[in-house]
């Protein structure tokens, strides 16, 4: 059999493309289907992603009318970030929302930081994505932890204090019990983001 094969004269039927006619046809068909899907559902997906950020903005910067939020692309040292400039219903500026992300204890943590108009004080913090340890680290998304950031100064580093060592002072955040690293990560992410982008918010 194998001898027969090897001695057989090469015909056009042995060509790879001819052999694969079905696959090529199916690939074309499937691509067409997927293009249709993308055209129909793509805009909905985009809108969903936008919505995920926008729904948080009133929590981050009080008195903001979501309809009047302006997206601004900031650039510095080759890095880019989309910041959201917020206005109230009368188009008076209310503040800024800045996305921030960095390494947490388990995985990347994505945050949104709310700042006042002069970018000198934090007005809020929400956690969008996190995979920290359930029961310990994932408490960073709880309000009791997040609200500590409200009112802290943006021009100096926020530091973490552990458990019982006195009450936190200005710009100090009380670490979550048993999740010092997660708490520290959130502070580091906020500090780094502010260091990089605060000057650019105008």
């Amino acid at each position: 059999m194998s001898e027969e094969n090897s001695t057989r004269k090469k015909s056009w039927k042995d060509n790879y493309l001819v052999q694969a006619w079905l696959i090529l046809l199916m690939a074309a068909l499937y691509s067409a289907v997927l293009i249709l899907v993308q055209l129909n559902w793509g805009p909905i997906i985009k809108e969903n992603q936008r919505q995920a950020t926008y729904s948080q903005i009133p929590i981050l910067v009080p008195n903001t009318d979501v309809a009047n939020v302006v997206e601004k692309t900031l650039e510095k040292d080759g890095k880019k970030v989309v910041a959201y400039q917020c206005f109230d219903a009368q188009k008076n500026p209310t503040g800024w929302v800045l996305p921030a992300s960095g390494q947490g204890f388990a995985d990347v943590v994505d945050l949104l930081v709310g700042l006042d108009t002069s970018a000198s004080k934090l007005t809020g913090l929400v956690v969008i994505n996190q995979k920290e340890t359930p029961g310990l680290g994932n408490l960073i998304k709880e309000e009791s932890f997040r609200k500590q950031f409200i009112g802290t100064a943006a021009d100096q580093d926020i530091t973490v204090v552990k458990g019982r060592d006195g009450s936190p002072e200005k710009n100090e955040i009380r670490a979550l019990t048993g999740a010092t690293i997660s708490s520290q990560s959130v502070c580091d992410i906020v500090n780094n983001t502010l260091k990089t982008w605060r000057e650019e918010l105008k």
Binding site: T133, G135, L136, G163, R164, T177, G178
Partner: peptide, 14 residues
């Protein structure tokens, strides 16, 4: 039960 076993569990609440 990580919070019942962590370092804080050894301390009598103040």
């Amino acid at each position: 039960f990580s919070s019942q076993m962590a370092a804080g569990a050894y301390l009598l609440p103040a």
